[in-house]
Nucleic acid binder design. Structure first.
Lengths: 326, 326
DNA sequence: GTGAAAGCGCTAACAG
DNA sequence: CTGTTAGCGCTTTCAC
């Protein structure tokens, strides 16, 4: 592997000059530049990223902390983020936190040690104080951390109301909500949206915890239905739970959507594998990923101005689980 | 952030001595060591990983190349791999190749630039020559690259035969195979297993391509069935395609497993969300991940000896899609 | 046992 | 415009 010194020697110049053409910084004579470029090509030279990091105290990589790589929502987000970041010459370092604070603090140490240029964080447990002794730019995705930390989110609250309104338009009035875990931002927001919309419409509320899990949600469905047989629709806090609802209803022999309609939230592929296919509020994953990548890069480059917080709307995808003759 | 020099000053020794206790290398006086350790604690010092890499030309990170992060099989593998690697103080750098050779060569360059200690690769397109000018240890997972490159795989061929045999035991004899894409190792192996077992049993073969995709598989199912109505079982090359089979059969009103039985391969969670739940050959993902991590570490540490190739068995999980009154 | 010094590959003053 | 030089933080001969 060639070093800058070898390039300099071949080109008959000093390493400083080579460094200048490498970073297109400072004045370099036209012919000198040409000689250097030839030498670079001849030696198939690439600057050593580690040495650069050591000096610059910054690398061309971005840390990305997600809570759970096995939740299909996140891999899609990762892909979107990677698209914009690699396009700008950055590498994404992906970390799985499992929402474990010890792990998170290790990850943050590691990111500092690796001189990452910035960080993208999806977490309900990371608070501003965890980030206080970290001097690198951070953008929160999918949930806010604090008003001081830039964020890119989804209008969970408003879109949840929209889901409920859609069910009402379809003729439902006894709408149950299987909600996600406590203290999880998206879960709380969607729950709040459900409550407010139902209250606004003067409709009764039926709520149980499903914890964003399939099995829990299946069970919750059955017990809720036992208590309130009049339920004519389920709004699940995410698609995984909605699939659980569909499983239970199917096993109970309840026709979907004729007797009970089901709507989810997320837009993951699972929703299309079940029968009937799941109607859902599809999250704008591409937009989330691209915007957060761009925002972070802008902040890193110091070229960002204006609002620190962005949010996008989920989009209703009507499929079979609500498309009855209704 | 403290540096080694500050630690040395506080401890009243030279940086060389600090370095020695850091790496527990060379002789250090007992009391000197104690002073240094105190200073380290007092300053909350952590050695700078980048500076270390620059000198050692090796970092404590492992590159992991997967073909597609949105395929649920890989996130699970990633988790298993991470478990063993982080335990040993290594960080996993995850890369998505999309099986794009250009991207792969960039990733390999990057890994060299970051001085990764080793690499784990899942790919059908990476050949030995791509790795030739790379001097870091490599382990292939889930598919072999060449006899010279250590690998940890699944007995796709044998386990596919097992799946077919199971179907036969259940009383099926007109068994169709929806196969994965051409030139994909796992796909070819499972196909070969199907063919050989069917031939051995003197049974007729029905094969179509499903390309490891849901929609393609659904369509393939319908056309295959139109041509050969006598089919009484489907062996799909992976679970995603098996779900596609179930979808089509359900929409055709064909009872599963009474009229037609279905078996998949992989053991992803999707299989439990569909109705009926999917019988499948569950891959030993944990074992795959752990073994490949250990193997790579052993090679890096030069402590490996013996076989370079390991393989594990997938395990039959009987669920509703084959559990008819049969 | 311990320290001084050279150097990993690169960049950024500072001279010229 | 271009070269010299001093580090970034760490490890490792080589003396003492």
């Amino acid at each position: 592997v060639a070093t800058i010194r070898e390039v300099a020697k071949l080109a008959g110049v000093s390493v400083a000059t080579v460094s200048r053409v490498l970073n297109s910084q400072g004045y370099v004579g036209v012919d000198t530049r040409k000689k250097v470029e030839q030498a670079i090509k001849a030696l198939n030279y690439t600057p050593n990223a580690v040495a650069r990091s050591l000096f610059n105290k910054q690398s061309k990589s971005i840390g990305f902390i997600i809570p759970d790589i096995t939740n299909p929502f996140f891999p899609q987000l990762v892909k979107a983020v990677e698209e914009t970041l690699t396009e700008q010459g950055y590498t994404v370092l992906l970390f799985n936190s499992d929402e474990n604070l010890e792990k998170i603090s290790k990850i943050i140490d590691l990111m500092k040690a690796e001189y990452v240029a910035g960080a993208l964080i999806v977490s309900d447990h990371v608070k501003e104080e965890h980030l206080s002794n970290i001097s690198i730019p951070v953008v929160a995705i999918d949930r806010t951390i604090s008003g001081n930390i830039p964020s890119v989110t989804v209008n969970n609250y408003e879109n949840a109301r929209e889901a409920v309104r859609f069910l009402i338009q379809q003729g439902c009035s006894r709408i149950a909500h299987i909600r996600g875990p406590k203290e999880v931002y998206t879960s709380e927001e969607r729950y709040r949206g459900y409550c407010d919309e139902m209250a606004a419409q003067g409709l009764p509320q039926f709520v149980t915890f499903g914890n964003y899990e399939l099995v829990t949600s299946s069970q919750a469905t059955i017990s809720l239905l036992a208590e309130h047989p009049q339920i004519d629709a389920f709004f699940a806090g995410n698609d995984i739970m909605a699939v659980g609802v569909i499983k239970s209803l199917t096993s109970l022999g309840i026709p979907i959507p004729e007797q009970i309609k089901v709507i989810g939230f997320d837009g993951i592929e699972w929703g299309t594998t079940v029968t009937p296919e799941l109607t859902t509020m599809m999250q704008p994953i591409q937009q989330l990923g691209h915007k957060s990548g761009e925002l972070l890069l802008d902040i890193i480059n110091g070229s960002h101005q204006g609002s620190q917080h962005f949010s996008f709307d989920a989009c209703l995808i009507e499929r079979q689980s609500t498309n009855g003759r209704g």
